[in-house]
Design a protein around this nucleic acid. Structure first.
Lengths: 152, 152
DNA sequence: AAAAAAAAAGACTTCTTTATCCTAATTATA
DNA sequence: TATAATTAGGATAAAGAAGTCTTTTTTTTT
C-alpha cells in the first residue's frame, strides 16, 4: 500500500519526533542504523522531507535532522503526501477506474471503512499527539525499541 | 496493496464466474475488452490461473476460458495466492520486519482488524457465493456493468 | 583560516513489475 | 484433411521503484 520510501519516511519522522530536539540533532547514519534502512536511500528521503519543511536540518559538525515545534504540528498524512502523493488512498482496491458508493466494486464496502479510518487517523492527529501515544502505549519503531522492551 | 496483475486476475475470474459456463467459453480478447485491461498481459495471467487449475480453458475455435463447478469452489484468496503469493497480507504496514500484537508498530492495531476481515472474506467465501452476492447486490466489475445499471 | 563533519544535489545502477511480441501447439469445423 | 481460431510458452522491452555513488555546499570547531 505505502511505498518502501514512504514507510521509511514515516518511521524516520516518528523516530526523530521521539529522539530529536533542536539541541539534539541526529544524522542520517544514526537514523538509518536504528531503523535498519538503506542509508543513502534514506538520505534522499530526509532531504525531500526537509525541502518540504516537514523536518528540519542543519549541516556541518553536530548537524543533522530534528523536528521543531512547528514540524510537530504536521500529520502523518503530510508525510504520505510528500513521498507517495495525496491520492494514495483514493484508488479502488480492485483497480476499477470508477468505484464509489453508488457504483461499488465487490469489495468496496469492505475496504472503504478501513481507508476512511486510516485516512482520518493519519490526517487528524499531529505528530506530537501521535508520538505521545507511541510512547505511552510502547509502540515499536525499530528493532532497538523491541530490544528495550525485551530487557525490561 | 494488490498488484495490478492480481487485480486483473481477480476481476477476470469474477467476470468468468458471472458470464461463462462450460458451454459458453470466453476468449482473452473479450475479457480484456470488458475489463479494460491490456490484452497480452491478461493472457499471461489467465494462462497462469489455468495452469494452477483455478480456471479452465479450451483451445481452438469457440474455445476460451470458463469456470467449472469445481473452479467455483475456490476462493478469491486462492487467486491472490496464485498471482501475488500467500504472504501478501502478512507484512507490517510500516515495513517493520517484526510487528505483532505484543510488539506492535504505531498503526498495527488500526491495520490488523482490517487485514483480518479482508483475509476472512477472501478465504471463507467460495467464488460461487461471492458471485451470487455480486449479482444480487449489483456490484460493478467493468465499465459495461456500470452502463447497464445506468440504463435501467 | 583550515579542516572536518554533515546535509544537499545529481548522475547512475539495479531490480521488479508491467507489458508486448512472436512462435508453437491444440482443436473445432468446414 | 486443411484452415482458422484460440490458448500456451518464451523472449524481450519499457517503466517505475529502490538503491548507490560521487561531488558540492554549508557549517562548526580548532
Amino acid at each position: 500500500m505505502l511505498s518502501n520510501a514512504c514507510q521509511y519516511a514515516i518511521r524516520s519522522v516518528l523516530y526523530l519526533s521521539i529522539h530529536s530536539t533542536h539541541e539534539i540533532k541526529i544524522g542520517v547514519k544514526k537514523v538509518a542504523e536504528e531503523l535498519e534502512t538503506p542509508q543513502p536511500f534514506l538520505a534522499k528521503l530526509l532531504q525531500q522531507l526537509a525541502k518540504s519543511n516537514l523536518i528540519s536540518s542543519v549541516k556541518g559538525p553536530n548537524g543533522g535532522f530534528y523536528l521543531t515545534e512547528k514540524n510537530l504540528e504536521n500529520s502523518l498524512w503530510d508525510i504520505v503526501k510528500c513521498i507517495d502523493g495525496g491520492d494514495k488512498f483514493d484508488n479502488c482496491f480492485l483497480g476499477l477506474s470508477l468505484c464509489d458508493d453508488s457504483n461499488p466494486c465487490p469489495v468496496h464496502f469492505i475496504v472503504t471503512p478501513f481507508k476512511d479510518k486510516l485516512l482520518n487517523d493519519f490526517r487528524d492527529k499531529t505528530l506530537a499527539q501521535f508520538t505521545k501515544e507511541i510512547i505511552t502505549t510502547r509502540r515499536v519503531l525499530s528493532l532497538k525499541d523491541y530490544n528495550v522492551l525485551e530487557k525490561k
